[in-house]
Design a protein around this nucleic acid. Structure first.
Lengths: 348, 348
DNA sequence: TTTTATTTTTAAAGCGCTTTAAATTTAACA
DNA sequence: TGTTAAATTTAAAGCGCTTTAAAAATAAAA
């Protein structure tokens, strides 16, 4: 094991000089630097990361917390994101350290994760409306960036999409087509983005003068089965022509919409005609909305678009930029496809 | 910032005693331990991970290398896996450190990753037939476990599935149904698992006395588009009744099979009747083979089944178990579904 | 009570690097 | 050539913890 010390001895130089030469400090003579570099590669010297971390007080690692596996229903979205984030961090010489929330004691393990100084900063995903982790980070003055945000106006750095706008655009589109019985198949309500979408939904419905039946807003995990179940619930009496049967549904995720498609097929409901469906699409590789039958209308904002901004943001914070100046809200694109149609009076 | 030193001063004890008390060493008096524990939580003491890492020489982190994002076509498979591995490692107090391969210099960055001593062990995925990383690790005597294996007989620890058997079972099933023109839509040939599957395929075809046309074995990335393109290639002259048009295809991945389905639909080929399809299924959450139309026959071995074994294996190695004694080959289950039918002479 | 064995605590070294402050060498100028 | 300034190099401290070897305190045995 070649250490700095042994390398220095070998070169008859002090550790200080060798360290500086290796790290590109300017005050090292050219010949000396060359000698050092050569000897280093000759002896296969590789600095001990842990020693460096201790000495510098920085670990060059960014943390990210994953929910416990059983909550990872929505997981596939993550992979590419993790890989991308890790890749972008790599560009600034940071690695990504994954911490798995321990079931039940997620917060506790998060706190340990943060305050062990193993990481220089942390990326928080899918915050809750009232996120304890964020409170803690703020309290500890620990560098972080959030993918999403807990509230409209906050002081920390975040990258979010225009959730309110997404819901709003969806409602407007449907209302323009004459729909009055518009339901929302939303994500669990503890998520901040879920609340934002619901707000956008409600506000716009109000603006358009449309009432919302109580049963029209449901909060469900973002999984196929859940979309299926919610649809069955809504359409179980589909021939009774009730006011409680939606003619259009705004879904929070493509998975839910897919479940809804399955249910519709089973029930003989024709999507795009009997029922209009629009979903928010994070654009994950393996569930392409354009390939749905019929193609699914969506509000679109690729998850992967967040990777570089998130990586860049946490790096910026660590190099001294004020978090308040690092807030981005990415727009959402409305993509109209065949799953949407005009509302018929006689239908359903 | 409470450090061990300040905590010791506060308690009028030596750092050694406090350290031992905190880490559960037996030689600490009961009253002393209690005092220490109380003071620690009172002052919110949290050991500095980097200092500990340096002092102990172990980092309690396991590394994993992701391919660069543009190679991550098959990515969604990973997420759940990462989360699960990370979770299982957590049970033994290890974290998971992700290193993103830098495009072009993957090997070099891998070597740095390993020899920086930032991690105690590493998990290698999808090895190549001739994997340079594994060579390096062996050379350096660095702890690792492989998901997959480079060859039938190796000395290192691995968790693999029976790839040969998977291909073999598929071929036997198709041959039993009278198929003679069986094609293989395999993964890129540099992957070890790809080679293993091809071997199983060829051997079994030979055993069954079936010839393989050159054009029947193709190697493509495991993506939808690639399955689509390969299918188009095979079936472009589907009405010419050539010997070069397969009646059955064994796919290496569900994504490829999905692309093949799309192509078949476009070309008016009825799967399960005109063409039999079977694929290997890693069982990823968002591409359920039972929901294909028709349901896709598969050889099945869930990716997520590998997580606990992989985590446990690397932990075992780090606690002294011989790698050679840590080799697992998981069986593959054959699931027959409607995408498979008997071969008709007149068809296609 | 003294001695010996046992339990508990401490002092100090060391993990391998960075970095400050001081020392040395080299270059520039008078 | 003697000074002063600038460029290089070094000695040494320190990052915050673990761990070895020695010391001190307590308990057991004589």
């Amino acid at each position: 094991m070649t250490t700095l010390k042994s390398l220095a001895q070998y070169l008859n130089l002090s550790q200080a000089t060798v360290s500086r030469a290796l790290n590109g400090f300017p005050e090292v003579g050219d010949k000396t630097r060359l000698r050092v570099l050569n000897a280093a590669s000759e002896l296969g010297y590789q600095a001990n990361a842990n020693a460096r971390k201790l000495a510098t007080g920085r670990s060059r690692m960014i943390g990210i917390v994953l929910h416990s596996p059983d909550e990872l229903i929505n997981a596939p979205t993550y992979v590419e994101e993790l890989a991308n984030i890790s890749h972008h961090l790599g560009d600034s010489d940071y690695d990504l350290l994954i911490n798995s929330a321990r079931k039940g004691k997620a917060l506790e393990s998060f706190k340990r994760f943060v305050s062990s100084r193993a990481i220089d900063g942390v990326i928080i995903k899918a915050p809750d409306v009232n996120d304890e982790r964020i409170k803690y980070l703020l309290e500890q003055d620990f560098p972080f960036v959030v993918h999403g945000r807990t509230d409209k106006e906050v002081d920390y750095a975040y990258f979010d999409i225009d959730n309110e706008g997404a819901a709003s655009q969806s409602v407007n589109l449907l209302a323009d087509l004459g729909h009055k019985r518009i339901a929302m198949l939303n994500a669990p309500s503890h998520f901040a983005f879920s609340a934002q979408r619901e707000e956008g939904f409600k506000n716009t419905m109000k603006e358009r003068g449309i009432d919302i039946a109580d049963s029209f807003i449901v909060n469900r995990p973002m999984a196929e089965e859940e979309g299926y179940k919610a649809a069955i619930e809504w359409f179980k009496d589909k021939n009774s022509c009730s006011d409680l049967i939606p003619t259009a549904v705004v879904c929070s995720s493509v998975s839910q919409a897919y479940g809804l498609y399955l249910a519709a097929k089973e029930l003989g409901i024709i999507i795009g005609k009997d029922l209009s469906v629009i979903a928010h699409d994070d654009v994950i590789a393996h569930l392409k909305t354009e390939n749905f039958t019929p193609p699914l209308a969506v509000t679109r904002s690729p998850f992967t678009d967040s990777c570089k901004p998130l990586a860049d943001t946490i790096v910026a914070i660590l190099s001294g930029v004020e978090p308040k100046n690092l807030q981005t809200i990415a727009p959402v694109e409305l993509v109209v496809r065949k799953s949407i149609g005009v509302a018929h009076q006689e239908d359903i």
